[in-house]
Amino acid sequence: MAAKDELGRAGEDRAVAYLIGRGYAILDRNWRCEQGELDIVAHHRDALAFVEVKTRRTLDYGHPFEAIDRPKRRRLWRLAQLWVRAHPATAPGAVLRLEAIGIVGADPARGALEHLQDLR
């Protein structure tokens, strides 16, 4: 596995632990279809949260959230709708919410973590 992939996987593992600690129930990880991938799908209160995780060792190439621009958000919303169609029995009537977790640090297990809910 490439170092970049290992970093991303470690960041996603940290994000999952963080979300579980805040009462999220993880429903899916790394869900793929022809149009792309969702990092984490979780149920939280009355919402289905589709969580994009970005992990960086440093800020040399910008903050992780900068990588989630408008086209990326539109694509994530499309993927969220596809996930719901593929899983119709999961939380019917739930609100859909796009979230992001950014982690910065040489070790994702101890790096700074930021969580944004309800990206628009």
Rank of each mutant, 00 (worst) to 15 (best):
V84Q: 05
R97S: 13
T55Y: 06
A80H: 12
V95I: 11
L116N: 04
L48P: 06
F65S: 14
A80L: 11
Y61R: 12
T58W: 05
A109C: 04
N30F: 14
E52N: 15
R14M: 11
T58R: 08
D13S: 14
G102T: 11
R45H: 04
A25M: 03
D46V: 12
R14D: 04
T58H: 10
Q35I: 08
A15Y: 09
W83P: 07
R32D: 14
C33Y: 00
L98Q: 02
D118R: 04
V95Y: 04
D60T: 14
W31L: 12
L79I: 07
P108F: 05
V16L: 12
A42V: 01
Q117L: 02
A94W: 13
A112F: 01
I68T: 10
G93E: 14
W83T: 02
A67R: 13
V51F: 02
L79F: 03
A49Y: 10
Q117H: 01
I26E: 05
D46Q: 15
D60R: 13
P88M: 05
A106R: 08
A42M: 01
G36Q: 06
K72M: 12
R73W: 01
R70G: 07
E6I: 09
C33G: 00
K72P: 00
E99L: 04
F50N: 06
M1K: 03
D118A: 11
R74T: 03
W31V: 13
R85P: 00
R120S: 09
H63M: 12
P108T: 03
H63V: 09
F65Q: 12
Q35Y: 10
A49W: 14
K54D: 14
I40V: 15
W83N: 08
P64A: 03
L113P: 05
G102P: 01
K54H: 15
W31N: 13
P64N: 10
I103L: 02
L7V: 08
A112D: 07
V104P: 11
T55N: 08
R120E: 10
W77T: 09
